[in-house]
Structure formats: C-alpha cells, structure tokens
Amino acid sequence: MSVEMTSIFGSGFMVLGAFIIATAAIGLIKLPDVYTRTSAVGTAAGLGVSFMIIGVVIFDYSTLNLIKGIIAIIAQLITSAIGSFMLARASYMTGGKPVETTVPDELADQS
C-alpha cells in the first residue's frame, strides 16, 4: 500500500475506534441501569479497542505486529467478556436491581 492509503485507512480505523469508545461513555450517562451500561461498555471493549489495534497494525505494518495484533484482539475480547460477566454477577449478588422497564425479568420471578 502507498503511504497515503496507509495513512487514510489507519486514521479512519483510529477515529472510528475513538468514536465508539466515546459513544460507550455517553451510554454510561444515557442508559438506565448497571446491566445496560455494562453492555454499552462491551462495545468499547470489543469493537472500539479492536479498531484502535487494527489502526496501529496498519500504520506500522510488519508480520510480527500483525500476529501480535490478532493475539491482542482475541485476548481483549475474552478477558473483557470475563470482566463483564464477573461485574454483572457481582452487581446482581449485591442486590443491584434492573430498571423497571426490564419487561420479562425471569430472574426476579424465579427467586
């Protein structure tokens, strides 16, 4: 790829990633309860950080960097999933109620 194309694609991915992280932050204010907020942060953890990593790989491309980037994306997805699950579980166990508009709430019906 030529230098301009590299710059355009890399910058595009980085701006998109930063934009998704910023929308996740707005979601922290807009969304009503801790579970929906965890979902919003999930977009930043997955797509946002992945786009930033892809941007770095495009900017200084080498085979080693590509392999490291793929490993970093996979590790980021798995670890953020574990983190979200543990946080949601801890919130539920410490009595965090979902918002009233949570229409089928079979967890509350069950216990």
Binding site: G27, T36, T102, L107
Partner: peptide, 21 residues
Amino acid sequence: SLQVVTLVIIPSKKPKPGIVS
C-alpha cells in the same frame, strides 16, 4: 455492536431490556 452504538447516539431511542432464563 453497531446496534448498541446507534441506540446510544440516537437520542429518541430507548433500550428495551429483558432477562430470560
């Protein structure tokens, strides 16, 4: 992911959550 992003950036959209066993 894009569905959640559009939910957040369009102000009139509200989440319709639910918990299912």
